[in-house]
Each structure stands twice: as C-alpha cells, then as structure tokens.
Design a protein around this nucleic acid. Structure first.
Length: 567
RNA sequence: UGGGCCGUCGACUAAUGGUAGGUCAAGUGCCUUUGGAGCACUUUGUCUAGGUUCGAAUCCUAGCGGCCCAGCCA
C-alpha cells in the first residue's frame, strides 16, 4: 500500500538516503515498502548514541513512506532484563517516534531453529565439540589461517541428532556449539565457521526456561531482519566485517534479502557512550543510577531538562557518515539552548544570595513589578513579582572592588533591578571575616519599571527576589561528568573512572526563588534569568522544590573575565 | 603483521568530474530592561606524492595517518 517516495529535496543529502533512493529507483525490492528496524539489546538504558540510530532508522523509513519496527535483540539472556525493555520503549516514545511493530528476536527462536536444521541438512552447518578455548586456537590469527575443526565433517545424520539433543538439554553448558561451515582460511575471521548456537542455561526474560541453546547475534540478526522484510538494516561501523556473513546466511536460506548498511557511531567530547561503561558507573554508584541527570542516557537527559526536539535537532545537525569523528559537546548544548530559549518561561531566582537593603524605600511597602514571561513569545504574557525594601541579589552581581570590564553593582555604581528600579550602592556591611554580607543602596523612585525619565543609562541589569516573599529551593548544578575531552584517555593502569569530574554535582541548598514558582510541577522547565535553564526534579515535594540546572546561559562575562585575567 | 572501513575549516557535515558551501566553535561590530536572545560581518579547509582529464575533494596508483576484527557478547 505504501508508495516509496523520493526524499525531499530540501534535506541535506546523506549516504544512507542516497543508497535507499537508489534501491527505490532501481526497484531492488520491487513494490515492497521500505522497512527498517531499531534493534537494541535490552541490556541497559538507551543513550544519546542510540538517539542517533533511532532518528536514522525511523527518520529514513519515514522519508520513504516506510515503516520501522522496534525489535529487541534479546539473544543473550544473561544480560537482558525486563526493566530495560520497558525503559527502552519509554525512551523511544519520548524521543518522538512510534514503531510499526514491537518485535523480539526471541519471537523467532522456533523459526531460527528450523532454519538451523535446514542448514545442517544442506551440509552447511555442523555440531562442534571443541571447547571455547580450542575454538579460539583453531580460529587462527589475523595473519594466519585457521584449522578445520576435527568435527567439521561429521555426517549430516549425526549433526541432526546431536543438535536436537543440544536443544533437548542433554549436554552441559558450553559442551558443544552449532557452527556454520564456511571457510577456516578466510581473511575475514567472521567467516571462519562462526558459532550459530551455544548451550546456555539461563532464564530468558521472555521465553523463560524453554531454551537452553541460544542463537548468536550473527545467526539471529540477519534472519530476524529478513523475517520482518526489513529492506535496509542500518547498524554501526564495527559490524561491517559481519556483512559477508549476514549475506551468506540469507543466501543459503534463500530468504528475503535484507541489506545491511553501516554508519558511524555518535561520539561526543567529555561523554562516554558505551552501555558497558555506563553500567559500571551505575553498579559502582559513581552516579545515582541510569537516570542520573549527569548521565548521557535519554532518561538522564530527560530528567536534566533536555527536550526531545533539542536532541533530534542535534542529531540532524551532526549528520551521518562513515568517519569516526567526535562532536563537540558545545554543539549539543547549542541545540539545547536554542530550543529552550523559545519555550522556557523566564523567572527570577538567586542561587547565591546577597542581601540588599534599599535604605530610602518605605518599610513595609510592597509593589508588584510586571515581568515578561518570555521575550521570545509574546503569547506567554506577563506576571507580577513582589518588590520590597529588602531583596536578594546574586553574590556574583556585587564586587566591592570591580575588576576591569565589570558592569554590575559596586560602591557608587548605579544598576537596574530588572523590572524594578535603578539602585545605587552606598555602603556595605561586612562580617568578622571581612566578607560583604549586606549591601545598602538607594533607589530612584522615578525609575519605576526600569526606565529613567531623564534618559540616564546604566550599564547593567541584574535580577533579584524580594527577601520576605522568596521561596527556598534546592538547586543542583551539574558540570561535565568527565573532566577530559576523551574520558578513556587515562594513564597506564587507570581507566575512565580516573577521569570522573569530582565537581560534576554541586548542591545549592538554599536558593531563593520568586514566589510564582511555588507550584512548579516536576519536569517543567524555566529560564532563571541570566543564569541558565532549570527544570523541576521529580525529587521535589510540596514546599520543597528541587531544580536541576539543565545548561547555563552563554556567559560573555566569563570570557571577558578570563581574558582580563580577573577573578 | 592479514582483512575491512575511513581521511574536506578547530569540530561535525555538503559538494556524486564543473563556483569548496552549511552548522557549531572562535573573533568583530550593531542592538539590548537577561553580559541572554537577535542581526551583520570575518578568519581558518580538500592528508602527501604522482597519474588520468579541457577540468579532480570526487577517478587511478603509491605512501602516510586513524578506526574496526582473533567472544560460545551485541
């Protein structure tokens, strides 16, 4: 029913789309619709590297009016869990994709078994009694050919009998394997009689204890693709050496000829994208689980405040090729800010409070300043923010001795309180340690709303909250989880654990927020003006809000400060 | 070392034998009630050497460099 459409002209080209377009125009699959699949193994949570694969698998199929299945590649019961199959579905949906069919490689265990029998009957597979270690020895090396297994020429009837008894559970784990009979001298090691089945007594999250033999990736993947009529099976570059084997099985069986195409994995600076290593961070409690906001998992990023749109835009901008590159984290952050800038309501919050007393403002008086909710979106409207004699401003927004290029408050200097008044600092109060703990100012009543009738200008506008109206909140500030661009670049004898950033989480226990935030719901995102984007963490409770900093705003002052060598 | 894949601005990626372009980053200026956002402008690139061709990032050869493969993981 689906008609294969040519790709839209507007999109930048990529080699995958080109291949698919060629296959469509050359009628490689006749009238069969384009079909792809996203095939995660349920052995961990999805991360942003998977987001790239998801966007490719679903996006490309969509470009050609095709369909995409979500298929769990669950052929190794020792590592797979239901928790993971659930989180994966949630994450794919959250990213904005919906699958045609939900499948499991384990759906095909019976069919795979039948096909294995066929290969045995055709003399293309045999039961091998070599131990794992012997198999390795017989395989040869990168430069030397392998040797034939002594069991390679077993009679078909014997192979059939042995294989059926493997399935029946007559042999202990690891005692025998079923191997494809291909070529022990092939320069491609994957073709040196690869193992198709191993004996493994482990409870499978779906098939329970029905099976004690499990298909390997090579035997399961291509056949699963074929069963689902997958036309284009995209996978990452490291599988390129498996493609001849992928094709060999399909040819021997004479089944639907799915085509494997490899592309490069996503890599990002300061980020680890390996399920195995992320699992270690979780198991060793280096982070608070898979959903820790510092994790590159989709669930961690979601909790951190990322939007699916930001991730999709990033993935699209990164593109796809066959080179092994590393994208700068700055690029991800750009697309995050770009999206949040459009959608996040602005709000005032003070992370590190410094008390400001406006000496000439009437005691007990409260005014309501009208604040714009989102300058990027007029329809977001305005809100009222209480203003009074005692306020909090950011400690960073006052300097007793202003460094070069510093525009904010300092003794004798006038600044604007956003949506409030111009104030001038007259004096400071210090504690015993000599630190400024209170700043005394005078306001100009004529500048209400933030404009001086005489046209006088100030160099900076700072945010504030009314001390008596502010609500307290915990704010969690995140930095990169790793302090090295390449987390794996560790000294001899060390690994990525050594590159963990000890300052990746800073908890601010008593931030002061404007009262409009009192009922902010978990998951909602805001821009704390001049600071960054923040979202409400699910740890929040009534009266005890917890915010995560999603990403800081671009900080021009930080650059200036760095250049001047200021503090 | 055998095989496979790949080398385009600092990063990612287009150009499919015919003007090396885009995004990020960096820089400059404008604007600004967020040192935010926005706008304008600028810098920097085809790994090297040969060859084919009127013309090469693109095709060929060689070299150099990087990544992947010796799990009964995926």
């Amino acid at each position: 029913m689906a008609v294969n459409a040519p790709p839209p002209e507007s999109r930048p080209s990529n080699f995958l789309r080109d291949i698919m377009a060629e296959d469509v125009s050359s009628n490689r699959y006749g009238k069969a619709p384009i079909q792809t699949r996203f095939p995660p193994e349920p052995n961990g949570y999805l991360h942003i590297g998977h987001a790239k694969a998801i966007c490719i698998d679903f996006g490309l199929a969509d470009d050609f009016c095709g369909k995409t299945n979500l298929r769990f590649d669950d052929t190794n019961p020792e590592k797979e869990e239901t928790e993971y199959v659930e989180s994966i579905q949630e994450d794919v949906r959250w990213l904005g994709f919906d699958w045609e069919r939900l499948c499991y490689a384990s759906d095909y265990f019976d069919q795979l078994y039948e096909w294995a029998l066929k290969l045995i009957r055709d003399g293309k597979a045999y039961v091998c009694d070599l131990t794992a270690e012997q198999v390795r020895e017989y395989r040869g090396t990168l430069t030397e050919p392998g040797k034939n297994s002594p069991y390679r020429n077993r009679a078909i009837a014997e192979n059939l009998d042995l294989f059926q008894r493997m399935k029946a559970g007559e042999f202990p784990d690891g005692a025998r394997t079923l191997r494809a009979k291909i070529d022990m001298a092939s320069p491609n090691l994957n073709m040196r009689d690869p193992v198709m089945y191993r004996i493994l007594r482990a409870e499978h999250h779906r098939t329970g204890n029905k099976w004690c033999i499990y298909a390997t990736y090579d035997w399961a993947h291509g056949q699963s693709d074929s069963i689902e009529n997958v036309t284009h099976s995209m996978c990452s570059l490291e599988f390129a050496d498996h493609q001849p084997l992928y094709n060999w099985f399909i040819e021997q069986l004479g089944i639907f000829p799915s085509r494997q195409i490899e592309f490069d994995r996503l890599a990002i600076t300061y980020t680890l994208l390996s399920k195995r290593k992320l699992l270690r961070l979780v198991n060793e409690k280096r982070v608070a689980g898979w959903t820790d906001p510092r994790m590159p998992t989709l669930s961690g990023m979601r909790r951190r405040g990322y939007t699916p749109e930001a991730i999709r835009n990033f993935v699209a901008a990164v593109g796809v090729s066959r080179t092994n590159g590393i994208v700068e984290l700055a690029m991800l952050e750009h697309f995050l800010r770009e999206d949040l800038n459009k959608r996040a309501p602005r709000v005032m919050a003070v992370l590190k409070p410094l008390k400001v007393v406006i000496d000439n403002y009437p005691k007990g008086q409260v005014e309501e300043a009208e604040a714009v909710n989102n300058p990027e979106d007029a329809s977001a409207g305005t809100r009222k923010v209480p203003f009074s004699r005692e306020l909090y401003i950011e400690q960073d927004d006052f300097r007793e001795v202003p460094p070069k290029g510093y525009y904010r408050l300092s003794p004798g200097r006038e600044v604007r309180l956003r949506y409030g008044y111009f104030i001038t600092c007259n004096s400071v109060v210090k504690n015993d340690a000599g630190e400024v703990v209170e700043v005394h100012c005078a306001y100009d009543p004529a500048t209400k709303g933030g404009n001086a009738p005489d046209g006088r200008k100030v160099k900076s506008t700072i945010h504030w909250v009314s001390a008596s109206h502010a609500i307290d909140a915990e704010v969690r500030i995140y930095e990169n989880l790793f302090s090295k661009e390449d987390p794996n670049d560790a000294a001899a004898g060390q690994d990525f654990i050594a590159n963990l950033n000890p300052h990746s989480l800073e908890v601010i226990a008593n931030a002061k927020l404007e009262p409009s935030l009192a009922k902010a719901a978990p998951g909602s995102r805001y821009q704390f003006e001049r600071l960054g984007y923040f979202c409400v963490d699910p740890d929040s409770q009534l009266g005890k809000l917890v915010f995560n900093r999603t990403v800081a705003l671009k900080d021009t002052w930080a650059k200036v400060e760095k250049k001047h060598g200021g503090r």
